[in-house]
Design a binder for these strands. Sequence first.
DNA 1: ATTTTGTATGTTATCGCTAACACCCAGTTT
DNA 2: AAACTGGGTGTTAGCGATAACATACAAAAT
Lengths: 347, 347
Amino acid sequence: MTRNQSANANRPLTLRDVSEASGVSEMTVSRVLRNRGDVSEATRTRVLEAAKTLGYVPNKIAGALASQRVNLVAVIVPSLGNLVFPEVLAGITEVLDETPLQPVFGVTNYEPDREEKVLYEMLSWRPSGVIIAGLEHNEAARAMLKNAGIPIVEIMDSDGDPVDAMVGISHRRAGRQMAQAIVEAGYRRIGFLGTKMPLDHRARKRFEGFTEAMAKEGLEIVDQEFYDGGSALVKGREMTQAILSRTPDLDFLYYSNDMIGAGGLLYCLDQGIDVPGQIGLAGFNGLRLLDGLPRKLATMDACRAEIGREAARIIAEHAGDEAGGGERIVLKPKLQLGDTLKRRTAR
Amino acid sequence: MTRNQSANANRPLTLRDVSEASGVSEMTVSRVLRNRGDVSEATRTRVLEAAKTLGYVPNKIAGALASQRVNLVAVIVPSLGNLVFPEVLAGITEVLDETPLQPVFGVTNYEPDREEKVLYEMLSWRPSGVIIAGLEHNEAARAMLKNAGIPIVEIMDSDGDPVDAMVGISHRRAGRQMAQAIVEAGYRRIGFLGTKMPLDHRARKRFEGFTEAMAKEGLEIVDQEFYDGGSALVKGREMTQAILSRTPDLDFLYYSNDMIGAGGLLYCLDQGIDVPGQIGLAGFNGLRLLDGLPRKLATMDACRAEIGREAARIIAEHAGDEAGGGERIVLKPKLQLGDTLKRRTAR
DNA sequence: ATTTTGTATGTTATCGCTAACACCCAGTTT
DNA sequence: AAACTGGGTGTTAGCGATAACATACAAAAT
């Protein structure tokens, strides 16, 4: 059998096939398909037609190897079930859509080893940039990010040192701010409800900021409750019941996220508890879900979409560079008092 | 300057660097890194050490081109904001984690043109398989799927003809089943609330199945209400208010998804409406979110995780093949009556 | 008419890796 | 002792595209 490739009918198409079908060189076909260089209108149409008829799909693997350019942006987040991250991804996509860059998503489940693995896999495709959630990574991951030679943007958090660029909010500050608002409204016996995940560093930092600001006012958290796994809404109910039956005289409950906060709110309303008169409530994230609840939960917006957009912008501006320019953007989340953070009675 | 590559200190590392650092050929390094072929324990350790010290990350682009193998699975879904899809992705990831395959996610926003583009981009990386939501695609996308020469699994829906393999549920049947349950419980004046999206084919099919089964009972939908955009929970409230003020004597509301259903439930409870005595309610999806609501909304499980797992299994079993074997898996969603679909008073 | 331009196209040499095969040599087997 | 193993390693030739340079040719400038 000769080297005639048409022997195998089912082999994937290459530039050569289009080239033969349209009677020009592979190079010209390549130029047409990429809109690069000068090609006469006549050949351009002929080539495009041939490509379409054959159903040719370019092989980016070969293209990337030859051009040393890969228009992918690795985006690594801990979870998709959180609702926060899909919004960040939406922001990223929105901006990258205006560019030749394309995001590729990876999920770590909050596990550092998995993050390392996902990062390694993604870097081995030589992307044009990396957007990764958080500032905490294991040593290997950190080393990879440092040596990658491409723009890196660490997102969501600003409490720490980024490898390169950074876009996020200060969760410590968010925690402090919420504590101040709560104390200012006159609440004193404050309980905390959060997740057990030691690896959710942002939740941890909010907690730290919260207790720190309380301490400044001479207050301590009276009781606390942690959970892991399961539906957050129902967990919020259960935890609220647990903490209130243990410590009935609490006058405020601070939840580490809106989902468990919403569960807590529903529980309190079910129990006929006067919110926010008897007990005040607050969460974190500014989920739009909250708008539909019977009462609007106090919360703070985590600036999700904007974080995504800014991160994507930085990557786009530095695509092809060896780094992202070390830009640091710290967004300021807005406190939303809603209906659940105000003393009806003066203190 | 000679061809000595070490001239540029910041050039990305290649096999050659590791080869030189460890004193063996590039081929041997490649073998070590891929765990393929026989390599003595001594060289293996030496090579691994060199690779680690240098911080070498293999170039999969070159590897894939040379081996004609790409261990990526393209996963294309309409949205990530829906909560349904992240769960499907989790199912896929769970199964692929046991294999050398890696999922890559793409999002279409329910737009056929975008789907075509995303698919094209992904196919140009020559993945080992495609998992794509829905059976409806535009002509170009359909052609690409047919000619891709790799396993294709269309998921979520079973009402239609797949290109290759298929894993899903029948949304028509789901709609019918819900209608029957509602009628059986004695409800007669039934309203429908759904999304305006003409491109959410699965929601459309549920609606069709629903009206069809109603017709068989000699019933028609008394009133209906549609929405687009915005937070589903708050929309559910608004729509419910709208439909009830227009047609106060409705005795059942069927929502096309759980999110708006939950909003409707909260509205009814706020208004002191007797649910399910005066008005019954039902949604669709079986979101775990519902567990935390004051009352459990009637719904149907969409088998999200299982769909993901099965689709991934099919891809894994056929990786390297020219197609996915045309397997068709139709899952049966379970009806969950919850607390909102039962007449307190006999009919 | 000759040179100059610039557009339109082709040719050649990689890109970094792996398949396939070639090779070498110590330890059997005959 | 010659022939055969088979583990351990190297060599060669692509994979399918693109960068960079080379070439052809018509129109414009001299």
